[in-house]
Computed example of a mutant assay.
Amino acid sequence: MNQYSQKYPHFKSIHLAENTGAPGKPRNIGIEKATGEYLIFLDPDDYIPNDAYEALYKVANENKSDFVMGKMVSFDDEDGREYEHITFKNYLLHKQYLNADIKSVPFFLQVKTAVYLKLVKTSFIKKHNISFVEGMKNGEDKYYDMQLFTKAAKFSYIPKVIYMYRARNDAKNLSLTQRDIVSTVENDVKAAKLVKPMLGSQEYTYFQINALRSLLWKLCDPDFNRLQMDTKLYLINLVKDVIKGYDKKLIEKYLKLEGPFISLIDKGYIDEALEYNKMLVSRRWWYKQGIELQAEYKKHAKIRKSYSWKMTKILRSRNFKLKQLIKRRYINESQHSSTFAGK
C-alpha cells in the first residue's frame, strides 16, 4: 500500500493504530477522507473486471443519479467455477434502470446487499451523513445500503457484471461472516431492526426478503443443526422478530422452498420448524453434490471431445483388449488350478 501511495499521487494509504476487527470504522474513515467526485468500496479478497468502474462512471456522468449500481458474480475459491446470485437472475434485473427511485422500483430492496456494487456521489454521502455501523462484522452494509436507497432522489442500474466475489469453501480460510453463526445472526437481526424505521411498510416487506436470505443461509446449514438446542432456540427467537408481518406473496415469489419454515416459526411451531429445516439442509447438501458432479462430467466431456483424445483412441482400444485378454487368461488359469487342486 505504501509503495502504491508513493508511486501514484492519487493513491492514499491510511493505517490505523489498531485492527478494528470489523469493516465499519475503516470505511467511515475512507468516506471522511474521500475527496473525489465519486466513491466506491472494494473488499481485499475480491476483484473487479478491468472496465467495471469505467462502465459505472459513464452512466453516472450521463445521468443525474445519486448512485449507479451494477451486478456481481461469485466464483469458487477452489476450482474457479462462477455462478450468479439468485437476485440477479430475476428478469427484472436483466434490463437497465436510469434515474429510478425506490418508490417506483421497491424490488431493489430485496437485491443482495453489496456496497461494492455502487458508485456513489461523494457529495451525496456527505450531505446526508451516510455511514456504516461500527463494530459489526456483518450486517453493517445493509444499513448503509438502505440509507442510499431511501435518501437518493434518483439512482441507476446497469445489468453488467462489475464485481467478482470470492466464495470460500475452505474450512481453514473462512470469511468473517462464516466464522461464528451466533454473532452473524445477531448482527443480521440488529441490522434489520436499524433499517425498519427507515422504510415504509411495503418497502420493508421487500427488505425482509433481503434480510431473511442472509439469515436463512446461516440457519439452513449443517453448522446450525450441530448447535445445542438452547442455542438453536435462541437464534430462532431472534429471527422471529425479523419475520413478523411478512408478505406471503413475496415469500412465495422469492423464498418458496423456505416459506413453510418461515411460516412455522411465525406461528410458534418451533419443533416442526426445526424438523423442516433438516430437510432444507439436506436439500442444499445434495444440490451442492449435484453441481460438483455436473462440473466433473463437463470436465470429462471436454476431454473426450479433444483432439488428443480422438488421436489416442486406437491405443486405448488396443490397451483395453490387452487387459481383457490378460483378465481371461488369469481366470482360466485360476479355474485350472482349482480343478487340479480338487483332484
Rank of each mutant, 00 (worst) to 15 (best):
K64V: 01
K196H: 09
L238S: 05
L199A: 09
K121D: 01
L280D: 09
S306L: 07
L216H: 04
E140F: 06
R328E: 15
S156C: 06
F107I: 05
I331P: 01
Y91N: 07
Q202L: 08
P222E: 05
L42I: 10
F320M: 08
L227F: 08
K95C: 04
L199Q: 06
G245C: 07
V120W: 00
Y144H: 05
I326E: 14
V161L: 00
I270H: 10
P159E: 00
L148D: 03
A60F: 05
K299V: 01
L238D: 02
K95M: 04
P222H: 03
Y144N: 03
I291S: 04
L264Q: 09
K288D: 15
G245N: 07
L274I: 14
V111I: 14
I29C: 02
Y163R: 06
I236T: 08
K313S: 14
K244N: 10
I209M: 14
K321L: 15
E37Q: 13
V281G: 05
K126Q: 12
T339P: 03
F11D: 03
D145S: 13
F107W: 12
E333V: 11
W286V: 13
S13Y: 15
F41P: 00
A52T: 03
P222G: 07
P260Y: 09
E292K: 15
W285G: 06
N19Y: 12
P106K: 07
S183Q: 11
K302L: 15
E140A: 13
Y287H: 15
N210G: 01
N2I: 12
N90S: 03
F88I: 07
V161F: 07
I40E: 02
I86E: 12
G24D: 08
V161H: 08
V115E: 13
T35G: 10
I303Q: 12
I265Q: 07
Q202F: 07
I243Q: 09
E272A: 14
S334T: 15
